[in-house]
Design a protein around this nucleic acid. Structure first.
Lengths: 125, 125
DNA sequence: TTCCCAAATAAGAACTGTTTGCAATTAGGA
DNA sequence: TCCTAATTGCAAACAGTTCTTATTTGGGAA
């Protein structure tokens, strides 16, 4: 992969943002590099997530988000402020194997997203 | 809620289909009732899922699907044929409470979708 | 039974998030 | 430095969903 300034700018944006959407990455990069196009942001995000440099989170009912934390973990999503944060769910270890054996279903991966209210929003009514 | 012929047709379609998308419901109803509009299908599906008559599944990276099975369960989604089937994951019982206590995050619900290859597709290369 | 009107509808425009086709530009090896 | 494949910007296409507006209809009231 060529090492373009666009890619560098996107990697920097990813470092400074927390679980951003493609659009948030675009806004961040665009503010210091106005000529970048959204298509480029989407293309680069897809490419680097395919190569395993970042995680591509497909959030039910919302825009996809990107995560620089690579180890196995899942997400909490606040229905009020939209914030997404990480959570580990050790209970799920071994589930893949069990389901493979019971259902003959070959599991490539899984995503668990909890939705609710984050600790900030839960007090604000 | 008024008991319209459109709603009846949609309920019948839901009974005869397995985890259909809104579009599949539309196609099914449309074939015997050509005047129905897509907006109506979406509106009715949203209404009856809000009322708890069906489950509204938001599949990451794909169209939403609707499920007439109401008890707690999760889903396997085949990346090849797109089929979605049910699976129960008892390992997750109690996880909500644990996360609430540890993260202060008030969980309204969660969805777990396994992706991979179903037993039919896993043999077809 | 007929009338009435809030609720529901059809049609399609608009919207959000994402991908694609294409011509122009560019990184980086020869 | 030159060459070429990779990458870019743009606009247009796309899928899924919601909104808008005028029109129709279910079902309670008279």
């Amino acid at each position: 992969m060529k090492n373009t300034i666009q890619k560098t700018a996107i990697m920097n944006a990813l470092m400074s943002l927390d679980h951003p959407t493609a659009d948030e990455v675009y806004e961040c990069v665009h503010s210091e590099f106005p000529s970048i196009s959204k298509a480029t942001v989407y293309r680069i995000l897809n490419r680097i997530s395919e190569e395993g440099e970042i995680l591509h989170l497909q959030i039910p009912g919302g825009a996809d988000r990107f995560d620089t934390t690579l180890c196995v973990h899942h997400h909490l999503r606040c229905n009020k402020c939209g914030k997404v944060c990480d959570v580990s769910v050790p209970e799920l270890e071994g589930v893949e194997k069990r389901i493979k054996e019971e259902n003959g279903f070959s599991i490539a991966g899984y995503r668990l997203v909890f939705s609710g209210l984050c600790s900030d929003c839960v007090y604000k009514k």
